[in-house]
Write a protein that binds this DNA or RNA. Structure first.
Lengths: 182, 182
DNA sequence: GGCTAGTTTGAGAATCATTCTCATGTCAAA
DNA sequence: TTTGACATGAGAATGATTCTCAAACTAGCC
């Protein structure tokens, strides 16, 4: 198919370098790659899987961190700005394998993604809006968390299931949908 | 277009009635329609939505009840025997609107369906296998259930979310996958 | 009994989120 | 700089779910 134009309108050739294009996802800034603890952690987890922490992936991690709740693919792409769908899904899969992001199933048909608790350092549960599908983080006190863990442990013992984790899901109406009657 | 053959190989014309076909979903047994409490309840809920409790739908409800855990479309079809996919999805939607069945999201890409707790009378939570996606019911003692409800209530209060329900999900390995290493 | 209106069904087409393909660009290490 | 391995982007493919519509059914009326 010959040398077709590849993303030319978004990334024109830099001046003085004909034939060479600029790519946002190039890993060209070693200085700032690990200047934040979270990025250092992500880079380490990716390295364990022999994966690179490219600029694209860093942008995605930062977008997920800034959104602060499980984000759909659309929300993630919007937050990042330029992000092809195929790359978004592929990198989410890579980050998922590395234990950096976790996939969250809500009530609608859209998958949502959030930073894993081990990366964000933010243990939480989820409140799901049964009307619009919005998922927000729900934190709890240490006392409540202990009761919940104890409950989960006992339920697991009663049912003979090899439980590694537990998740509490609160189903109801988000503030926006609660305002709009029915 | 024209009068094409419609499902002829599965439901041949009954003897002596040329031109007439037999359909499994026909509502032709009023006697046994409501002879069980659960069927009476389901019929009532469907009637509230101006929907009929056809034989197909009753078969689906019975299959869901007998499976005893959230079932995938494939499992449901297998349990029923003859059940077109389109009819299965449509009736699950109808039963869902009537509050008879509930959709359960597991860890894999398959939606699962179970009888609503109001119909089955069986309050429970779910244990999800992170390996194969199997979802089984997990019951808990009254004491644990109270602690869990209290926890959910407090978390909801802390986060200002209009919570109507809560669900606990235990993630781990099912017995079958725990046996098979890795 | 038959007739009519509205409902349910089944097969296949359509939808659409997600995954896959592959040519091309980029990185890291000699 | 060369080379091999990995990352990317556009589009095609996949596949669960939903939609379409003609045909078959039920309920209610005569």
């Amino acid at each position: 198919m010959g040398p077709k134009e590849w993303f030319p309108e978004l990334h024109p050739e830099p001046d003085g370098e004909p034939g060479r294009h600029r790519y946002d996802w190039a890993v060209t800034e070693p200085r700032s790659l690990a200047d934040e603890p979270i990025h250092r952690d992500v880079a380490l987890r990716l390295a364990r899987n022999e994966q690179r922490y490219t600029r694209q992936r860093r942008t995605m991690v930062e977008a997920l961190a800034s959104i602060g709740r499980p984000a759909t693919i659309g929300e993630l792409i919007e937050a990042v700005g330029e992000l092809p769908i195929s790359t978004a899904y592929r990198n989410l899969a890579v980050l998922g394998d590395a234990g950096v992001v976790r996939r969250v199933n809500g009530t609608d048909e859209f998958a949502r993604f959030e930073l894993a608790e081990e990366v964000s350092g933010h243990h939480h549960h989820h409140a799901v809006c049964s009307s619009c599908g919005l998922v927000i983080d729900a934190t709890s006190s240490a006392r409540l968390e202990m009761a919940l863990a104890e409950t989960a442990r006992a339920i697991a013992a009663e049912n003979g299931f090899d439980v590694a984790d537990h998740r509490l899901e609160l189903v109801g109406r988000c503030l926006s949908c609660a305002r709009t009657a029915t």
